[in-house]
């Protein structure tokens, strides 16, 4: 689903998709699965998320920051996202998962933030592509 990027102090990922909606959904899933082992996460609950930006890159950073906020503040593990509406200025989506239960869900990483470092969100001949570096 995504490829992990090594970076001296941080970690990142690359995702590819046919549409921006799919790209942003996969990026959200990539962030969640770097933070937690998601194998045991059941889609028992849903959560609406939205973010705004002024271009695809800023939208990606703000979207993933929102995903991180849900994970960190609400302790909600979301393993799948459906994007309802998306433009370079705004995204509306729904995530599916369940509240974190330390007995069943193994934490992998604490993600501090989503960076603009080597960030790419672009349409290529073969489809949509994003690269994101996270501060950990």
């Amino acid at each position: 689903m995504f490829e992990v990027i090594e970076h001296t102090a941080d970690i990142g990922f690359r995702v590819r998709a046919a549409t921006p909606a799919e790209l942003f959904a996969r990026a959200g899933e990539a962030l969640m699965s770097l933070a937690f082992e998601l194998d045991n996460v059941e889609p028992r609950q849903s959560c609406d998320l939205s973010a705004t930006g002024w271009d695809w890159e800023s939208l990606m950073v703000n979207w993933l920051s929102e995903v991180l906020f849900v994970l960190d503040a609400q302790r909600l593990l979301l393993r799948r996202f459906e994007v309802a509406r998306i433009s370079p200025e705004a995204i509306e989506a729904r995530g599916y998962g369940e509240p974190c239960n330390p007995q069943r869900h193994r934490a992998k990483l604490v993600i501090k933030g989503v960076t603009y470092h080597q960030l790419a969100v672009e349409q290529r001949s073969e489809g949509w592509y994003a690269q994101v570096i996270l501060d950990i």
Partner: peptide, 17 residues
Amino acid sequence: RALGHQVCTDYLAEMGV
């Protein structure tokens, strides 16, 4: 901790604009 992380995230977004 996460308080500082979120402050950085918030102001990076604001300053970008």
